[in-house]
């Protein structure tokens, strides 16, 4: 893998930016070049949140992901807005417990995962984003399992270290899905 451009999208509060941060830190542990760019401002409040993560062996040019290799869509407005921007041969990961609509493309790999349901049934309400990250890791292998865990450790603030294990569990569920 040389370049991987990922666009995480969903509602504010679903942990979109945090998911991107874990991925970015995992890439840093892997020794890659990377950038993490959030959407910001009023669009974040109640509207859609998005986060661009670029990982490469080379210097990152534009950090804004316009044509993602991987699109993560955790709500319908985001899927509708971004699905046609994914590069042919790319991957769309949809939280299908929230988004009931199917992706209208046959030139990309579509992964429907009931991330919110899986998280909730395992007592991990609110960790659907980590279930999705686990699945993204399985689909792309963007780093080693060890570095993914290190990325998580770096991203969870010391004060919230008690959340590490539930996040780990959610990632594992995504990998096994």
């Amino acid at each position: 893998m040389s370049d991987l451009n990922v666009l995480f999208t969903g509602f504010g509060g679903q942990g979109i930016l945090f998911t991107g941060k874990v991925m970015a830190y995992a890439a840093l542990m892997e020794g890659k070049e990377l950038s993490w760019l959030p959407s910001y401002g009023p669009e974040m409040r109640g509207g859609t949140a998005s986060c661009s993560v670029c990982i490469s062996d080379n210097t990152i040019g534009s950090p804004l992901v316009v044509n993602p290799d991987v699109l993560v869509a955790m709500n319908l407005p985001s899927l509708e807005k971004f699905q046609n921007d994914v590069v042919p041969g790319g991957i769309i990961i949809v939280d299908s417990s929230i988004v009931k609509q199917k992706v209208g493309r046959d030139d990309v790999k579509v992964v429907y995962i009931e991330a919110s349901r899986i998280a909730e049934e395992n007592g991990l309400k609110g960790a659907a984003n980590m279930v999705i990250l686990g699945r993204l890791f399985k689909e792309t292998g963007f780093c080693s399992a060890e570095n993914l865990d290190k990325g998580l450790q770096k991203s969870v603030p010391a004060k919230k270290a008690n959340l590490l294990d539930s996040n780990r569990k959610a990632i594992a569920l995504g990998i096994d899905s």
Binding site: L28, W36, L37, P38
Partner: peptide, 10 residues
Amino acid sequence: DGMLGQMMEP
């Protein structure tokens, strides 16, 4: 600018 200010890099 807003992009360089808001983005994270190593």
